[in-house]
Amino acid sequence: MYGRRSRFLTFMLGAGLAFLYVPMIMLVIYSFNYSKIVPVWGGWSLRWYESLFKSEDVWNAVVLSLKIAVVNATFATLLGTLAGLAMVRFGKFRGRTLFGGMLVAPLVMPEVITGLSLLVLFITLKKLIGWPEDRGFTTITIAHITFSLAYVAVIIQSRLTGMGETLEEAALDLGAKPFRVLTDITLPRLAPGMVAGWLLAFTLSLDDLVIASFVTGPGANTLPILIFSRIRLGLRPDINALATIIILVVATGVAIAAFIMYRQQKQFQRDMQIAFQEEK
């Protein structure tokens, strides 16, 4: 629905974007502040970046968070894709309502409830079967997969609905076996959705503080847990530096991903056009 954009809407857009971006820009600027007291300007400096790179705690937290994020994203994408396929393509099956409910609830469930309930689950399991022995990498990853898979499933579901079933039906009519239809048609067409889901799951995992704080054990500090324990006590210039690096990495990553997806989409449209032209 294109059309005139009234002055009021243009103003709201500008103000909204300023509201979203000015705090982040300030955060970045003050990371280059020499002064130890964050809001007091003491000249440009890179000293906080230096102290950041020397900190072993920060590196350990970064490594742990990245490991969790990669394993989480991979499993969440697999499980979420299966769940999305089941919801969209399998019609009615026994327990579909409960399944659908369990797939949507993690999207809105307050984190304190999810965190608390997973922790008591892990403790009960340990009492009953002796697993998981310590809390840390494994328990955080399981917790993250549980909510990430719901996000992946949403993406896969909307993609499957958008794709329609005509190509699959054509393949079946031409005698392809159902499994071959899945591997040769459905999954390749789903691939961009799965990539988007993987990236989302990866980010959600890196972002989570509350659930990880519940299910972690002594010594296993993810990056958000480390950041939170420091900023609870007030502003810290080294956290500004860390934030700047994170913002930079994320912005670059998202921009690249968006560019690739945009190009793929164009490529797909071109392919379709050529296919239709040849048909004529």
Partner: peptide
Amino acid sequence: LPFWTSFLLRVYAWMGL
């Protein structure tokens, strides 16, 4: 884009402001 960057750090940004 801001949604992809850390939630915690976006809250932290306001502590400074």
